[in-house]
């Protein structure tokens, strides 16, 4: 009944876990969603990750579970279509893409996700300059693609993993915690031990934020079963020596001892950054971040400035995949309720 109200579809912006979960929910509620994705491929970050924490489930598998039902229902996914702006329209909503195309929709779920912190902005770590410095996202992509990293197992003796790169750092303008990088670092440390069993792995953290179910256990496993070393301290700088090895300086803030160490390669746990869209919300976040701000009032957390647009996922702030998916479902439901209430009027 609701979907027969008008011939217009419901738009979902972003095909990451949040967007896909929203589309699935809309489908289940009897709507006809169409998905707009600015990249060539669908799945958001999911399409780039290898195995997901905490249970090492393959990201490709999860993506398949999310996309399968949509394909079956021939939900249209327009890739390489970036949505630029949206405004109210007599049909509900006018959506304008970057190429200038205008589409009318009844409503929309906005799930544009986050961007990874550009590690080159943290110049002292030499990302982009030193070939043995990678980001956590690089590692995921390499593992997803070839199942290995471009370092010869026999040469690798020490691996460093740096937490909080671009998060909780006033100097780069991001004071907030990106939430998932600690547990992701624990997961990648174990993966490194699996790939390079004879190498030592050192995680340098400020403090460990392991809030989710099974996270603390994974951390214990990393220490007990995999002998991963966790050292509290922020690394001040990295330098490259003649052989391309990375020399690192830090201070163990638990013992107060300055440390220098040579590492074969280093992984930077990059944080998340948001992007503001003025048509969704004019408000600023209290932490100064650029994530889309939303009413933090428990019951209206998907709402935006446009009544028929709901916002979901990591575009609102750092989140895990499960949280992003749940938020996507919640947004779909909120939109559904709104459309019903409008129809009843």
């Amino acid at each position: 009944m609701t979907n027969k109200q008008t011939q217009f579809p419901i738009a979902v912006i972003g095909s990451g876990p949040a967007g896909l979960a929203a589309a699935n929910t809309l489908l289940a509620l009897g709507h006809q969603p169409v998905i707009f994705e600015k990249e060539k491929i669908t799945g958001g970050k999911l399409s780039r990750w290898h195995q997901l924490f905490p249970g090492f489930i393959s990201a490709a598998e999860i993506q398949e579970q999310l996309i399968g039902p949509l394909k079956k229902a021939s939900v249209k996914i327009s890739t390489e279509t970036e949505v630029k702006t949206m405004k109210p329209d007599s049909g509900g909503l006018e959506i304008e893409t970057a190429s200038g195309e205008k589409i009318i929709a009844k409503g929309a779920v906005w799930a544009s996700g986050y961007t990874e912190f550009d590690a080159r902005r943290k110049e002292e770590y030499g990302y982009g300059l030193y070939k043995n410095v990678l980001t956590s996202a690089d590692v995921e992509e390499m593992l997803a693609k070839d199942g290995k990293l471009p370092f010869d197992s026999a040469d690798v003796k020490r691996i460093g993993i740096l937490h909080c790169v671009g998060s909780r750092d006033e100097k780069v303008g991001n004071t907030y915690c990106s939430k998932v990088c600690c547990i992701c670092a624990v997961k990648q440390a174990i993966e490194m031990k699996k790939l390079y069993p004879s190498a030592e792995v050192f995680n340098f953290y400020m403090d460990l934020r392991l809030f989710g179910k099974g996270y603390e256990e994974l951390y214990r496993e990393a220490q007990m079963d995999w002998q991963v070393n966790f050292i509290r301290g922020r690394v001040s700088e990295l330098a490259e020596d003649q052989q391309g090895k990375i020399r690192m300086k830090t201070e163990d803030t638990l013992t107060g001892v300055p440390m220098k160490m040579t590492l074969d390669f280093v992984i930077l746990m990059v944080g998340m950054e948001g992007k503001r869209f003025s048509f969704l919300s004019e408000n600023k976040n209290t932490d100064g971040s650029d994530f889309i701000s939303y009413p933090e009032n428990f019951t209206g957390e998907n709402q935006t400035a446009l009544p028929n647009v709901m916002v979901a996922g990591a575009c609102k702030g750092p989140s895990t995949i499960v949280d992003a998916m749940n938020d996507g479902k919640s947004a779909a439901l909120a939109l559904h309720q709104y459309l019903i209430s409008q129809a009843e009027k």
Binding site: E123, E124, G126, L129, Y130, E237, L238, A239, E240
Partner: peptide
């Protein structure tokens, strides 16, 4: 300059 390794390189 060590904090901006591009300069040294």
């Amino acid at each position: 300059s060590s904090l901006s390794p591009g300069i040294e390189q």
